[in-house]
């Protein structure tokens, strides 16, 4: 069966925008930190006709990388991008091809961590009233948005067209007053996203506070109205922000809020 653009883009988002949040989760969430403190595993994800990624746990840190890991302890194979996506929506299982002795880790330990990530990525109104939860959910939402934008600009026809023709420069997305922040670098067609501040951004998007950022990033408010009212301030080279906003608008096509 031919892989659809939707399946392929979603597979990239699942690995490099959603799963990537584990890097911060094990640092910022005490429960996740405790859980993973002594993990020493590298999980390889190989998708036929799709992306390849690895997830490494070592010394209490987590790294999500592209391509093949230098040495994996567990290797999971997926028949297609859709197969991978179905695993992320808990409708399918991966095919383990290495690390059979680690199956208990995969079956019991690892899901507890992904459940924790899901808890922070899928807020309820009640949970968002907790300032700690709001801060973490906003951070993960911001990072997911930035990483997803880079993936989509590379792999989705609409987003590629939106960002085509932009020059070089970076866009800073920052929640005031103290962050979190992420930035997206455009370099003659190559687009990458990173957590944290940019050195000399060409364009800036400042969200007034965590509550505004949360509502804005989750598309719960009219973006234009938010800008006009000063809840979200934009400065600098607008073509970058204009193109980026069209890409960000498309995220719910793949990742339901």
């Amino acid at each position: 069966m031919k892989t659809s653009e939707h399946d392929l883009v979603l597979a990239h988002l699942n690995l490099f925008a959603v799963l990537k949040n584990l890097e911060e989760l094990v640092v910022r969430d005490p429960e996740s930190a405790r859980m993973t403190a002594d993990w020493n595993e590298t999980i390889q994800f190989t998708v036929m006709g799709g992306p390849q990624a690895f997830l490494s746990f070592s010394g209490g840190r987590c790294t999500v990388g592209r391509g093949a890991a230098r040495k994996s302890t567990i290797s999971l194979f997926f028949l297609s991008p859709r197969h991978l996506n179905r695993m992320f929506s808990e409708k399918a299982n991966p095919i383990p091809v290495k690390g059979f002795l680690k199956l208990p880790f995969l079956a019991k330990k690892f899901p507890k961590l992904t459940e924790r990530l899901e808890y922070f990525l899928k807020p309820t109104d009640a949970l968002l009233k907790d300032p700690g939860y709001l801060a973490l959910n906003t951070l993960f939402t911001l990072h997911t948005a930035a990483f997803a934008a880079a993936e989509m600009a590379a792999g989705e026809a609409f987003s590629r067209a939106s960002t085509a023709g932009l020059g070089s420069g970076s866009v800073l997305l920052k929640v005031l007053p103290e962050g979190p922040a992420a930035h997206i670098e455009f370099d003659k067609g190559k687009i990458t996203a990173k957590a944290g501040e940019a050195e000399k951004p060409a364009a800036f998007m400042y969200m007034k506070d965590l509550a505004v950022a949360n509502a804005f990033l989750n598309q719960k408010m009219d973006a234009f109205a938010a800008i006009a009212k000063g809840e979200v301030a934009i400065w600098g080279q607008m073509p970058f922000l204009d193109a980026l906003s069209r890409v960000l608008d498309r995220i719910p096509v793949y990742l339901a809020p």
Binding site: F224, A225, I227, A228, K229
Partner: peptide, 28 residues
């Protein structure tokens, strides 16, 4: 700004198209 607050409730973007306040930086 008070008019815009009313507008944002009943008009997409409050003011749409080329007269949108979005590129008027800073809108304040």
């Amino acid at each position: 700004q008070a008019l815009f607050d009313r507008a944002a409730k009943v008009i997409p973007c409050g003011i749409y198209g080329h007269m949108s306040p979005a590129p008027l930086i800073p809108p304040s």
